[in-house]
């Protein structure tokens, strides 16, 4: 195998920039293309595609944090609305025993404090964290997010630390640990963003948040699609599979050509989180039975695979930011 042919595994932008130079160096060393060189080139192909030698870009970190906090805020908003509806339904059903011993309707079934306390005040704070991020205030969002997550975590761990922990159901404890993954993901991404790194444009921040809400809304019907619904009249699956594969290919091509690699990377990270943590806040929880769990995991894995493909394809086309201005450097003709 020729060395130039081996270099085809590298991203397009990398080949355009360095392939001639690498071939020249390899020719000068007089070495053959052995397993060591093949392994080194494959490692280079992976690290250049992952961006900055494997580290996520600042934009990716911002997008991951925004999407995760949007999911948490959506979950908090849904819980609040749901609790509000229950209280409104029960508003006229307050009863009190009068001195004569008869039950008397009071009509005061709820108050605002009791409502917020039932949902969990700390969860409502995720909405404020989201607003801070949309305004570009990373540090304020990080501080409030840490406090909120600490309260959330302590509420979850409370029964574990109490004397009654012996009676705690293992399933509930596992659920609490899984629920902590999304706050950890959001705060970890925010903490990793450099202090001096500029935030993405306000329009892009709003777009990520809006896209997350749409994705959460769409996840409900998608997760309800069962295998039986995909079977055609003659009992075969292939027509539906063909359509799904074609749609997936269109998604990957469009994402690779039109979107910033950070978008695909964000979807990839969130999909893997969904595999580990179960349905994200705001999506219908269909984990009641084995079929539901399998459906959610398969959906998240499919999203992760598609996003990974789009990510790899898109990072192969664009040079990283630290090389963007290199073409303007001086050239010297030495003959």
């Amino acid at each position: 195998m020729s060395y130039r042919r081996l270099l085809r595994v590298l991203p397009t932008w990398y080949q355009e920039r360095y392939a001639d130079e690498m071939v020249e160096v390899h020719r000068a060393t007089g070495a053959r293309v052995g397993p060591g060189e093949v392994a080194a080139t494959l490692r280079l192909a992976v690290s250049t595609r992952l961006g900055r030698a494997g580290r996520p870009s600042t934009t990716t970190l911002w997008f991951v944090a925004l999407a995760a906090v949007t999911a948490l805020a959506a979950g908090a908003a849904l819980s609040t609305v749901s609790a509000l509806q229950v209280r409104l339904d029960d508003a006229g059903r307050g009863w009190q025993m009068d001195p004569s011993g008869r039950l008397r309707e009071t009509g005061s079934g709820w108050d605002a404090y009791e409502l917020l306390a039932s949902v969990g005040l700390y969860r409502v704070a995720w909405i404020v964290v989201l607003l801070l991020l949309l305004c570009g205030s990373r540090r304020a969002a990080l501080v409030l997010g840490l406090v909120t997550a600490a309260l959330d975590l302590s509420a979850g761990l409370g029964p574990l630390l109490s004397r009654d922990s012996a009676f705690l159901e293992v399933a509930l404890a596992r659920s609490d640990v899984r629920a902590a993954l999304l706050p950890v993901l959001a705060l970890g991404a925010l903490a990793l963003v450099g202090r001096e790194a500029p935030a993405p444009a306000a329009r892009r921040r709003a777009a990520v948040s809006a896209a997350t809400v749409v994705a959460l809304y769409a996840a409900g019907p998608l997760s309800a699609v069962s295998g039986a619904m995909l079977v055609w009249g003659d009992g075969t699956l292939w027509p539906t599979t063909a359509v799904a594969v074609a749609l997936a290919a269109v998604f990957v091509i469009l994402a690779a050509r039109c979107l910033d690699p950070a978008w695909a990377a964000t979807v990839f990270v969130l999909a893997l989180t969904a595999v580990l943590a179960g349905p994200l806040p705001g999506t219908p929880d269909r984990t009641g039975g084995p079929d539901g769990i399998a459906g959610n995991v398969l959906l998240a894995l499919a999203a992760a695979a598609l996003a990974a493909l789009a990510w790899v394809a898109s990072t192969g086309r664009r040079a990283p930011a630290h090389l963007a201005g290199e073409s303007s450097r001086r050239r010297v003709a030495a003959g």
Binding site: H26, G36, E37, R43, L44, S47, T48, A53
Partner: peptide, 10 residues
């Protein structure tokens, strides 16, 4: 290795 050199330079 040339691949190692350019990965490190990157």
């Amino acid at each position: 290795k040339v691949g190692t050199l350019y990965g490190a330079l990157d």
